[in-house]
Amino acid sequence: MLARILAAASCGVVLCCLANPALAEGTPAGTVIENTATLSFELDGNPATITSNTTSITVVELIDLAVTLQSPQTLVSAGDTNQALLFSVVNTGNGTETFQLAINSTVSGDDFDPVPSTVSIYFDSDGSGDFTAGDIPYVPGDNDPVLAPDASVAILILNDIPADRLNGDVGFSELIVSSATGSGSPGDDFAGQGDGGVTAVLGTSGGIDTVRGEYLVSDVQVSIQKSQTVSDPFGGNEPVPGATITYTIEVSVTGSGTAVGGIVEDVIPTFTTYVPGSLTLDAGTLTDAADADAGELNTSTTPTIVVRLGDVTATGSPRTVQFDVLID
């Protein structure tokens, strides 16, 4: 009835079977788009308007999804357990869809096969991006994620790393996400299985997406040691007001791996004042300003020395940071 009234008004009417508003990923499944053309003219000076028949097309459900890896290459040690890779699963179709999750760690092209942990798929329930106690395990057929159009869910897959792996070994593991309605070739359809009983059609994903994450075995240990020397204004080593304390921070790396992106931060102690221009890295002077060099004095909160070491290996070790403070 609504259709007839609206059609009589000769507008393109949209009857939405769902409560969903128009979505970024497309017109919701079940939407009916009607069209009526209008012809106006004059005959013997008399204006008239007539309308055409009304055509109707129904938007069917497009099943599509996109899985993306959120973790960078994940550094692990041989023998580690429950090592997580984080993925995001987005329903890029136009209907509400149930998705099934699976893990595959026997992927070719790597150095070793990670071993799926006893429980190997979790929802990142607390949104931490890592595996934590609050995360809920995925149970196939029991808590398959149901996603509205555009909605997403964060998934963790967990693997154990065999104890015999060597530094530098890479292992792949995949998350496989498929539509519960079905998967196959783009364009395959499932009559009556879309939202509201419309046809469901597989989009470019074919209703399934497999994305790979990567573990890198990194055999590396980092140690840091701090020492101090005091020189007072009188030629001695007494920590009196006016005396200078020279702090030395030594970062050592052992093992065959690489410590990636190391940063040394050290807060200037209370009752002391940093000596401007005294910061050095491996005996080379660093300016106090935040600029292109590796270090600075960060004064935005508590004055803090910050030195970015970058990637450190055993052969490039130790790295030595030094700076002076004056006792107030």
Binding site: G12, V14, I33, N35, T38, L39, V59
Partner: peptide
Amino acid sequence: ADDVIITNPISEEL
């Protein structure tokens, strides 16, 4: 017939 005009809406979904 004079002044013949055909008008067609473009639905917001299109």
